[in-house]
Design a binder for these strands. Sequence first.
DNA 1: TCTGGGGTCCTAGGACCC
DNA 2: TCTGGGGTCCTAGGACCC
Length: 432
Amino acid sequence: MNGIVDCNSFYCSCERLFRPDLWDRPVVVLSNNDGCIVSRTDEAKSLGVDMAVPYYQCREVMERHGVSVFSSNYHLYGDMSMRVMDTLRFLMDDEDGGHERVEVYSVDEAFLDLRHIPAAQLHEFSLRLRTVVEEWTGIRVSVGVASTKLLSKVANKLAKKEKIKTNCVMVLDTEDAVFEALQRTEVGDLWGIGRRYAVKLRDYYGIQNAWQLRQMPEEWARKNLGGVVGVRLIKELRGEPCIEMKDPLEQKKMIATTRMFGTPVYDLQPLKEAVATYTARAAEKLRRQCSAAGSVDVFVVTSGDASGQYEYDPHSDHRYSILPNPSSVTHELMRYVLPLVEQLYRPGMKYLKAGVILGRLVPEGAIQGNLFVPAPENRNGALMDAIDNLNFSMRDDVVKYLASGLTRNWKMRQELRSRRFTTRWGELHEVK
DNA sequence: TCTGGGGTCCTAGGACCC
DNA sequence: TCTGGGGTCCTAGGACCC
């Protein structure tokens, strides 16, 4: 059997850890740039605060009801995530590095391979996971268990919907249980069915719930639900596992760093500084997984012109270069990135966002030589190591490239961020 | 004034090869 | 005069996830 553990309102739960006064109060956390709602507690949800809604649209309602609002504090969430995952690995007896039973799927979710747990003990074991994780980390989780990943996601969602009745744990171990769960699951709530497909299924095919979808033939899914993706979805609904546990050592195939600007940018210089900064960040991620990039892609998003258009009507444009030799050295990447910014720049435009995407990644140890271009003599590995170590140990960017700029007026807004309680000495929780 | 960031997988279609 | 069939590789774009 397969399980999934999912933290309840993860970002909000992290904020509550250090604010016990908010324990039963409505809380939300905002995306970068304080743009929209990315996490909300049940209390906020019942006030009608929806997920992914722009902050400015529900600000008034939230103020009226005294909702506590936080900017994203990724230092805190990242650290808490590690603690939760470590706890799961311990409880799953997953420490010897052999076959991995815990697959970290996102910052707040992990799939579990439960084949070693006897069927009769699955429920008790899941309850134990839930209880111990809460005791050790303070984070409450929900557990769903079933024969496939997709079905365990269904179980998890239902467990979370009826926390009191289920104690945040649901095991679908009989045909009847699966039937009932799928009947109660709207098709748009299924993992793999997004907004587009949900509308199509409901309006065009009259399919409302997951059980109805399960009755559809595979060939129909191949035609109308994204090819093999749709077929896999139907099979998983029927209890036939098609989505394997992923190898945790797999490397990323692309690495991106992209940001909205805190305030719009109009000039070339700050635009270049921002993109240079993103390049440095992306290159760090690249080196952390010991890869080198064979291509760089820069994109910008504009809206109207500098005269101040009213409507929000974003347009994006991009340019890319293929590197003669894959590289992971920040300033080598910048040498290809910055001319692309100049190509993209149009005076008088209002820039809202920009980003860098590193592609064609290869393992650093095995960079293929280019027959026609001599490899750079010094690969600057030691310099990059030194910068990475400094920046990592001091946490902030103490060493940076001049191309990244010094003033950084375009940096994102984060006006409501809590302290980095668990990762900064200077921001530790104080007990009086 | 104003809507995040970082990924994955898949398909269609064009260019090119023999 | 007239123009196949089979294959690969690449890119753009769509859909999805959290």
